[in-house]
Design a binder for these strands. Structure first.
Lengths: 151, 151
DNA sequence: GTAAATGCAAATGATTTGCGGCTGG
DNA sequence: CCAGCCGCAAATCATTTGCATTTAC
C-alpha cells in the first residue's frame, strides 16, 4: 500500500472525464471526487472507506451515492470491483491487467503483475470446462507488514 | 456439474463423522443431512440451496441452522467456503487442492486440478509483498453449457 | 444429566431503491 | 430547460444473534 504518483492520478482523471463526456455521463462533483479518491490509492478501499474520504471534501455526499456511482463506473469500465476474502466489495482504479496478493491476516489486497501467466499452458481438464477468457491468480499468504507486527 | 460417486460420498461422510467424534462435535440429524447434501454435489451450492435440499428430508430445519452448521464445518476444516463472482457464499466438500473455473455467464463454478501451479516460479515482485502460502487460480470464461444455449 | 445444538424471531450490516428536489450541459 | 443525479429514508438480501427448548452422548 503506497502512494500513487500525482501524474498517474491526473492521467486517470483525464480518462475518466473523457469517457464520461463521450458516454453522456454527467461529470458531477461527487463523481469526480469519488473517482479521484479511488485513483489516488492502491489500497482497494471499500465503498464505506471511499465515502469517508469523499466526505472531507463534500460533507453532504451520501453513502448510497457512493454505491450508485461505483456501480455506474464499473458498468462503464472505469473501475474494477475486487472480490476479497472478507464480505465487503472493494474497488480499484487500476485497470491494467494484474493479479492480487491477499494477506490472510489483515485481509489487505496488493496488486502485482505476472505477464507469463497469460501464456501458460492450461491443463487439458480445465479447457474442457469451457472457453477460458482470463486467468486470475490470487496469492494467499502473510504480508510483510503483518510479519513484522505479530499479533 | 456432475454426480458424485456414492462411494466417495460414503467416504466423505465417514470422515465427517470421525472428525465430529474426535473433536466433540455432536453428530445431529441436521449436521449429517447438511453435510450429505454438500458431499453429494460438485455444484458449490449456496446456503439457501443446501437449505432447500435438506428441507426435503428434515422439514423442520431452519435456515439459520444451515448457516451455523456450515460455519462450524468450515472452522473444523470439514468443508471449504468459496468466494464466487456473485455476492453469496458457496460451499464445497471437496477438500483436495484444486482451482476454479467460473462462468461469467451463469456464475457456475467448476473444480479442476493443476498440480504444476504449485511449483511455478513466482514473479520477484510478488515475493516482495509477503510470504506466499498458496496460489489460487480462477479461470474466467464461458462454460460449455452456456456456449451451447446462447442467451 | 448437561453442555451443545436447534428453531424461532428479531437484529445486523452491506447494499439497493423510490421519490421529490437539485444541477450539469 | 430537463434528463440525469443526488440526498434522504425506507426497503432488501444474505447472514447473524439472543433466547428458550430440545437432544446427543
Amino acid at each position: 500500500v503506497s502512494e500513487i504518483a500525482g501524474e498517474l492520478i491526473e492521467q486517470r482523471l483525464k480518462r475518466f472525464v473523457d469517457v464520461c463526456r463521450c458516454r453522456g455521463l454527467k461529470v458531477t462533483h461527487q463523481r469526480l471526487e469519488i473517482f479521484r479518491q479511488l485513483a489516488s490509492t492502491d489500497a482497494h478501499p471499500t465503498a464505506e472507506e471511499i465515502f469517508n474520504r469523499v466526505r472531507v471534501q463534500l460533507p453532504r455526499v451520501s453513502l448510497d451515492t457512493v454505491y450508485r456511482t461505483l456501480a455506474t463506473m464499473q458498468e462503464y469500465g472505469l473501475i474494477a470491483r475486487v472480490e476479497a476474502l472478507d464480505d465487503r466489495g472493494r474497488f480499484d482504479a487500476n485497470l491494467e491487467r494484474h493479479h492480487h496478493f491477499v494477506c490472510t491476516e489483515c485481509k489487505g489486497v496488493s496488486d502485482f503483475y505476472w505477464p507469463s501467466l497469460d501464456v501458460i499452458k492450461l491443463p487439458r481438464e480445465a479447457k474442457k470446462l469451457g472457453e477460458v477468457r482470463q486467468i486470475c491468480a490470487e496469492l494467499r499468504g502473510i504480508c510483510t507488514s503483518c510479519q513484522s507486527q505479530p499479533g
